[in-house]
Every structure is written in structure tokens, then in C-alpha cells.
Amino acid sequence: MNLIVPLITVQNFAGIVSLIGAIVVLSVVLFLISSASSYEDKHEVKEKVYKARKRYFIGLASVAVILFFSSLQFLPYPKNQTTPADKIVTVVAMQWTWKMGEGVSTLSPHDFVGTNEITLPANKSIQFVVSSMDVNHNFAIYNSKGDLVAQTQAMPEYENQLYYTFPEPGEYAILCLEYCGMPHGFMTGKIHIN
């Protein structure tokens, strides 16, 4: 589930890229501040800057296109799932707990009965069928290190399909990541991976 290589998590990738971006911007700012003490004719400046702008435009457009297409292989959507899941789990969110059970439920979210702890196997593709019986919630899975590894919205009247393969045995936590009312921060669940 990592983005570029297994050693870089998505979080670190975003942090490093943004830090580089910020350093570039601040360097330009410092350069501009220091340059502004001397004078050059506007037309000459324009000519120089516009040349750089053309190169920048081509560079930025190319990077944007490359990043756009290369990022598409990591999409979280069910459409990108090529093989069927090994196990299906129904998840219903309610203010302020989770109901989970194996298999596809034919009951309405209100009637569905489940628990907020579940045991699942490692290295098997799991399809979570996620909905809500009241307001919007967000089904987010955290690994034992405290890193968010997968998420989808839990919505009333809709079902979101989330596929995830737990890479190793251990304890995982479920947090609600969509504000859903006063005890939102305590709407947790557990997944035990064998």
C-alpha cells in the first residue's frame, strides 16, 4: 500500500515533497528580497523572467501529467480491484460505535447486528462493505504503529466498498474520521489480525 517504495509511507512522501516545495518557495523569496536593492529596467527583467517562465510552464505541466498518471495505479476505489476479495465484512457505523460482522448483510443498517471488534486473517484481501444508519462517519483503519492505512466514508443510504489486505498479524484500531457529534473522538473499534 506504500506509494513509491515500501520504505516511504504516503505520509512521509507528502511531508518530504511539501518540505522541498516550501524550501524552493522560501529560497525564491529570499533571492527576490536581496535582488530588489539594485535596479534593472523592467523590459530587461521581463525578457529574462518570461524565458524562465516558459521553461517552468513546460516543466510543471510535464510533472503534473506524469504524476497524475503514475498516481492512478494506487487508487483506493473498488473499480481498481482486479481480483475478488477473500473475505467480506459488513460494517455499519452509528452514533457512536461500529457494528461489524462477516459476510454480506441483507438486513437494513438499522437491523444489522454486529460487534465493534472483529478477528480477520493476515495477507488475505478483505472487502469492507461500509454504511451508516444515521449520519456521515468515516471508517479509518490504523495499524499498531498508529499510522492510518486505509479509510472510506460511512454514509447513510449508500454503501462504500473498501478493499484492504492486512500485511501482518497484530492489533489494528478503527477510528471515526468524519465529525459526527459530541463523542466523535471516542467512536472506536478493534480489528485483531491472526
Binding site: 506509494l3 505520509q11 494506487f74 483506493p76 479509518a140 492505512v149
Partner: peptide, 26 residues
């Protein structure tokens, strides 16, 4: 302008679907 650029860049990073699947609502 620098703040706009830095915040905007971090926003573009988060607007990548493959990254947002982890950073969304953090």
C-alpha cells in the same frame, strides 16, 4: 504570495487521490 504558494502546494499534494486516501481528514 509565498504562503499561498506553500499552502497551495500542500493542497495539491493532498488533492492526489492516492495520497488523500491516507491524509484525508487528518
Amino acid at each position: 504570495m509565498a504562503g499561498w504558494a506553500i499552502g497551495g502546494f500542500a493542497a495539491v499534494v493532498d488533492s492526489t487521490m492516492s495520497i488523500n486516501k491516507i491524509l484525508h481528514n487528518t
